[in-house]
Amino acid sequence: MSGARGLGAALLLLLGGLALLGPSLLPDPALQDLRSALQPPGTTWWLGTDHLGRSVLARAAHALRFSLTLAATAVGIAVLLGTGLGLLAASLGGLADRALAALGDATLALPGLLLVMVVVAFAPGEILPLSGGVALAQWVHFFRVARAEARRVLALPHAEAARVLGFGPDYVLRRLVLPELRPILLTLVGFGLGTAVLQVAALSFVGVGVRPPTPELGSMTTELLPYLPEAPVQALVPAVLVAMLVLGFQLLSADEGQKP
């Protein structure tokens, strides 16, 4: 499976590079030139132009940067919140543990995308509710995994041994629980980033995520839908980029995911 991981890393490196360097090297993504609208891919416009004559490549680079930043922020918040609360619940036990677990179950009462949409409804088209919604839908996965793994490790004889030998809860969490938790969390982060990218693109595609003229991978496809017969490549390129991004995240975390 290390071949798959390598492929995943290569995909992410390529797309990450485009997101990082693209915006400073490529032309202004908002620059309209109606005379060169819907140009097919070629030497001047590598990925062609859209209906307003804007460079698809430049817009894609900006959109990639936007997607990656948003996904990383949302998943970062979810990891910190979920893992922290999970470890807290497992070490406290009792009533606090049950209350936090109930909160987690409650979050799962709605499918993830629906939860994001309910939050987005407060201010469709804005970034804050979008990233907040994605984080809200994801924290519970990190919470459940962290809680379950911490409970498992804390119940093992070696964790009991550490306590009997005079080590405090800080040592037990840092040295015994975290090393076991880290690979699982990394896998979950990979899948979480993929899910976040997909959700943002899907919501923007249907028009309640990020709105034009901000370049976004989902809404770029929507904008070009009316021109599908003339400009299929320009309409599909953003969707292909989403798929490559998600595939990259999935492949990179596949190895740990294969563990029983």
Binding site: P157, H158, E160, A161, V164, L165, G166, R175, L176
Partner: peptide, 17 residues
């Protein structure tokens, strides 16, 4: 001191990190 009250576990590999 509390750690002078100690234990040996049934399954030796499980009692080590």
């Amino acid at each position: 001191a509390p750690w002078r009250f100690t234990k040996l576990w049934q399954d030796p590999p499980a009692a080590f990190v």
